[in-house]
Design a protein around this nucleic acid. Structure first.
Lengths: 347, 347
DNA sequence: TTGTACGCGTTATCAC
DNA sequence: GTGATAACGCGTACAA
């Protein structure tokens, strides 16, 4: 055999028209059992395993592929448990649409790299709020491809999947206030990309939406709470922040609001190092509601965000856009969950 | 405008033949500067952003997409830091080939789900050793698509990317023996899928290759070492194993060989709980060489496996196969790294 | 350097 | 229920 069998080879062998053979595989039109059997037999005999997806996608104008664009190395992206869950949901979401996910990076590594403009995608999902976001958006809109943005500010009529960061974080802060806490410190996500760990000063411009919004929520309740911004959402970074916060016994807060569960885990570690008991001496809240491996027996008081649902919602939005149905931006809600890391303020 | 501009629209507007316009975009043939400018101008004017990838891939017989097949939910897969690194390398590897990665699941969720047989992929990479592996292989070979298997037993002439698990783990064991350790316990990865934490008995059949091989390596040095198999590569699971191992002061080992860094981190935690100092009272080795978030100040003695390189190697293998070059299976080597979690046997 | 002609493998449409 | 036809949009010999 020199080349792979095509549907017309199969049709010829089966003694039917190519279009009939096609229908046997697509099932779009009723076919007599006998014809079907003959076609299937011919296919079997010729080693034909079904329509060539490339040709099919040209003809139908759909490839069944949705591009997901990340702003960074996959390794970095997938270190974030929330993003992983989101991807999981997204996989589900687009699967129900009969599509798969194509991983794309927004900075074209080598030339010839598949990109938003060269990949055979039916739609795109942009994740995170990178500097490239606008360029990615432009590329994708130039192609006339539906696009959804998750956790990023897309502006102008692009459907977005967002979270109620401000309100959610405010809830956590109120929980602490209700427990009598007054001296509260904040541990935030990075202020901008490339940020080094350190206290946030009033003139630092916060360019990361999530950081800014959660910070704003906490400050609605504790306007003067000092904030230490970590370099990323990791336990070790949380520990660094925690050490800074607990360094001076004189100014020690009675509660710490961390902007992620991993950061909170690190703060707990730092508290232990400083000889502080959680929650007796210091209360700590997280954000995300993920399972932090190795944190037991602590169960974080945290805000459970619907991470998987974010992905699924994006998938649904994409599906709708491909059906020419109108799609609106969506804001998902986090749920407050009391764990054992918060308690009444000491004294 | 009703439909998107095609290359012939552009050509017509520019007053050249379609093939000339095509060449302007592909760059395969020299074009006069003036013609190029005209074509580009026409494209700009018509909002043409380049050749339709679907049509192009039909024509060239290549889609520029490599499928990666996982055996489980993405979320589960990406909980494994090693797999993440591997994906990172794979992304690089196929990028240098000008391809992107399409995420595929091997159990077709809903019908209409993109699968190995219906996705427009040029090649496939199978990850892990699932029960579906053989079926996935069959599907992909029926299509005549190049395939590479990472960390799985594919048999019969399929290029594989493997690790020197036996030898590497033997090295770690010898390191401990050289330090004078004689009572050693092993903490392994699951014996089979769905495994519950517990001691391995001689008649347990070990169906997971990695587990079996690393166990064999350790037993070459410590033939009688008891082995506790965890339910997965997690810190919490390692802690469970560690508690079991340190439970009886009378039979306490002086060293523990864990089959992953995360497990080792858990064992360390358990040791601390039991009041044991690491490495003074008990030495602990890991496997993988990843950064375990939250483990500081410990630096594991471990085997650094070239996780990223595994992916890259797979990418290269795929590239070679697409070029019709012969490809052989590959075994990558782990490197022993001494950290601060192993020391001389006590007394 | 540019244009002509053809086919890549399918599938939607419509007539039978 | 089946078949003929015509694109889908492009790339590439080959000739000019």
């Amino acid at each position: 055999m020199s080349r792979r069998a095509t549907i017309s080879d199969v049709a010829r062998t089966a003694g039917v028209a190519a279009s009939t053979a096609s229908v046997v595989f697509s099932g779009k039109t009723p076919v007599s059992d006998e014809t079907r059997a003959r076609v299937l037999a011919a296919a079997e005999q010729l080693g034909y395993t079904g329509p060539d997806p490339r040709a099919a996608s040209l003809r139908r104008g759909r490839s069944g592929i949705v591009g997901v664009v990340f702003e960074e190395h996959l390794g970095r992206t997938f270190q974030d448990p929330v993003k992983i869950l989101m991807m999981d949901g997204l996989t589900d979401g687009v699967a129900s649409l009969g599509a798969g996910l194509l991983l794309l990076r927004d900075r074209a590594e080598s030339s010839g790299d598949p990109t938003l403009t060269t990949a055979p995608i039916d739609a795109a999902v942009l994740v995170g709020c990178s500097g490239m976001l606008r360029e990615s958006l432009a590329a994708v809109r130039a192609r006339g491809i539906p696009v959804v943005v998750i956790e990023g500010d897309a502006g102008e009529g692009v459907p977005q999947i967002q979270l109620d960061n401000v309100e959610a974080q405010r809830l956590a802060a109120e929980h602490l206030r209700a427990l009598g806490h007054e001296r509260v410190a904040l541990v935030t996500l990075p202020v901008r990309s490339g940020w080094e760990p350190g206290w946030i000063s009033p003139d630092d411009e916060i360019t990361v939406d999530v950081t800014r919004d959660r910070l704003a929520g906490a400050r609605e309740v504790f306007p003067d709470a000092p904030a230490f911004a970590a370099a990323g959402s990791f336990i070790d970074e949380g520990a660094i922040a925690g050490r800074a916060i607990f360094a001076d016994p004189g100014t020690r807060p009675t509660a710490v609001i961390a902007q992620s569960d991993l950061l909170a885990a690190g703060v707990i570690r730092a508290a232990e190092e400083a000889g502080l008991r959680v929650p007796e001496d210091v209360s700590i809240t997280g954000f995300d509601g993920i399972v932090v491996d190795g944190l037991a027996p602590y169960a974080l008081t945290t805000l459970v965000q619907p991470a998987t649902e974010k992905g699924r919602a994006a998938g649904r939005a994409v599906a709708a856009m491909l059906d020419d149905r109108p799609v609106e931006s969506q804001q998902l809600e986090s749920i407050f969950r009391k764990g054992n890391t918060t308690g009444p303020a000491p004294e």
